[in-house]
Design a protein around this nucleic acid. Structure first.
Lengths: 170, 170
DNA sequence: TATTGTTATACTCTATAACTATA
DNA sequence: TATAGTTATAGAGTATAACAATA
């Protein structure tokens, strides 16, 4: 039988959850404003550009690009079109699979990333890292990485049928 | 002179940042879906209801309610109206300060919260807490609380003028 | 048939600025 | 004048479903 989670959180868990939500929310809001000012980018657009910038040849298929950044295909199409109009990415059919589109970051895209990075990093340092020790950061990275890997693995069992309908795990 | 942050992040910081963003993003997306299904609530609406539910008499002024959940006044007005139409909150002018509106969670609001909580908590347990030890949670709560308190204090100095303005917004 | 991606469409949410009213 | 809140409006972003094309 699958281990059933208790129906409540202990205060420690509640604190961790609230702090996580609040920290990421405040951080994201601050970073979004900086990205908008420095490069007229939304956070999602920045994530897409940064993902491409890190990719082997600055180039990924739409589907792979979407992974983890965007939650619907049409949403990615929308953003990719926006970025393409600005000349920050280019799109071309894949030679291997004619169904696929390969998205590549352009020179302008890399240049904009470079413009935006310093301010981005400054915010992270000032807001997030300033009050933390090296050990804190180490632990944070370790624990969150474990959580992330876990989330990436199985689709959350409880993502489906809870709440209103109070039937037990059927 | 203000201490200047280094222009780059070390790999550890980068890892902590990415993991934080990814974890909170995955978590929030999962929770949003659950809230929508179980109670037809957006995350912000849930936060507002939950904040009211925790308040001394289930009642807060608009301004205090906004704090930390919403980033503009009109945004709160919009959400408060939405919740009021559904009978989940009520609004009445404050007797002390005629300018203020006091928002109170209703019985229906509390009932909906109760409907939604179990599924919400189940997701947290399954996605976030399952792979973590009690010590992990303890540390996470501690470190993130410190970060949050720091963020709450001063408006980030770097929120203003960094990253070379790329004014070609035309 | 399954997969990749686009389009049309409708909707939610947010932000800015102008506004009213009270302190 | 400053504060509390609303309104009008406009724009960004997202999701769903129907669609075309390739594997």
């Amino acid at each position: 039988m699958v281990k059933t989670s208790p129906a409540v959180l202990d205060p420690l868990q509640l604190g961790a959850y609230f702090a996580l939500i609040e920290v990421s929310s405040l951080l994201r809001h601050a970073v979004e404003q900086q990205l908008r000012r420095a490069g007229d980018l939304s956070y999602v657009q920045f994530q897409l550009l940064a993902t491409l910038g890190d990719a082997p040849r600055g180039c990924l298929r739409m589907t792979d690009l979407a992974d983890g950044v965007v939650y619907s295909r049409s949403g990615l199409t929308y953003q990719a079109q926006t970025l393409e109009k600005r000349g920050l990415v280019s799109r071309a059919p894949s030679s291997e699979d004619e169904r696929s589109i390969e998205v590549a970051i352009t020179e302008d895209g890399r240049s904009l990333l470079a413009d935006v990075f310093p301010g981005h990093i400054a915010i992270l340092n000032d807001m997030l890292f300033a009050p933390l020790t090296g050990q804190d950061v180490q632990t944070l990275a370790d624990v969150l990485a474990r959580a992330r890997d876990h989330m990436r693995q199985g689709p959350a069992r409880s993502a489906a049928p809870r709440g209103r309908a109070h039937r037990s795990t059927s």
